[in-house]
Design a protein around this nucleic acid. Sequence first.
DNA 1: GTCTATATGTGGATAGAC
DNA 2: GTCTATCCACATATAGAC
Lengths: 187, 187
Amino acid sequence: MATDTKTALLNSAERAARTRGFDGFSYADLSADVGIRKASIHHHFPTKAALSVALMERYYDDLKAVCDQIDVSHKTGGARLTALIDRYRSALEGGKSLCLCVSFSTSRESLPEEVIAQIGRFREMIIAWTETVFAAGQTDGSIAHVANPAVEAAAALPLLEGAQLAARVEENPALFDSAVQILTQRL
Amino acid sequence: MATDTKTALLNSAERAARTRGFDGFSYADLSADVGIRKASIHHHFPTKAALSVALMERYYDDLKAVCDQIDVSHKTGGARLTALIDRYRSALEGGKSLCLCVSFSTSRESLPEEVIAQIGRFREMIIAWTETVFAAGQTDGSIAHVANPAVEAAAALPLLEGAQLAARVEENPALFDSAVQILTQRL
DNA sequence: GTCTATATGTGGATAGAC
DNA sequence: GTCTATCCACATATAGAC
């Protein structure tokens, strides 16, 4: 069964946004990629703003599921933190891509207010979850010198995002590894 | 004495790039801001790509001078790190602005290769300087638990940049403070 | 060095037939 | 739900007069 057109559009748009930025792709690009005419895309997403909202909504749900899955498959705080770092590392795709949240954060002025609010909720969700990870690592001893899980969590997400941005600018994933070594050396 | 036209254009473009992104301003905006016609801008900067190179070149020199000045006016590693954090904090301008390096990093696909190379050199310069700061803080005891200055420096810049990006998305400078608390609590 | 006028391309979006 | 055809706004850039 082929993916339906709407999902195909979301997939194409997400890949495009993550590699070229929200301003870096047009309905013409999606049209060529998915194989329908520009005008037809407006039937599924009346405006590009509506498309951005749908993308961010799906991304929130995806990452929420990822965090839940990590909790299931990894038991120590250290293992969970490693899984999160790995997730951000692999989203780099060799230095050619960012996670959707960073990509959208960098296109602020082109996005509707609704997406800005979604980004806020997304960040809160990830940081809250990361705090539980550091708290677990503090308790089970799998993350060294955790003084304050809330402070650690507030720093971890910006660090992962800044590391992605740096690695992507120079298309060099080693810059990501170098930036997050401050975390991985404690595991 | 009025600033010459070329400098006025650079100033206007830098402010615009930092608040709205490189794709977020046009020659029409500069024209309105500086008070000359669009076509006249091409006399000073033939292409927008050439303008971006000039902006990044000036920014490199500015930050180099800032680091040198910090070395002169602050003696301990801790005081120097505080000064760097303050610099990135104030570049936020209440959550409405980014430093030029982060802004350009987020507009990668619109920039010429020369600017990408300039960003690489800029980042190397800042990270090398930051390493000397952490090394000083380790020696003079003004920064707590420094195990490896190189690892600290490789993380500090992405953290500052990620913190700026987060604070700017929600136009909330408190998010910057929250993210860098992992550093400031050690001072 | 600055101007008017214009070229040329591309963006998102709409109307209306099928 | 998809199409053709078209609109309108705006972008960067150029030609040539003053």
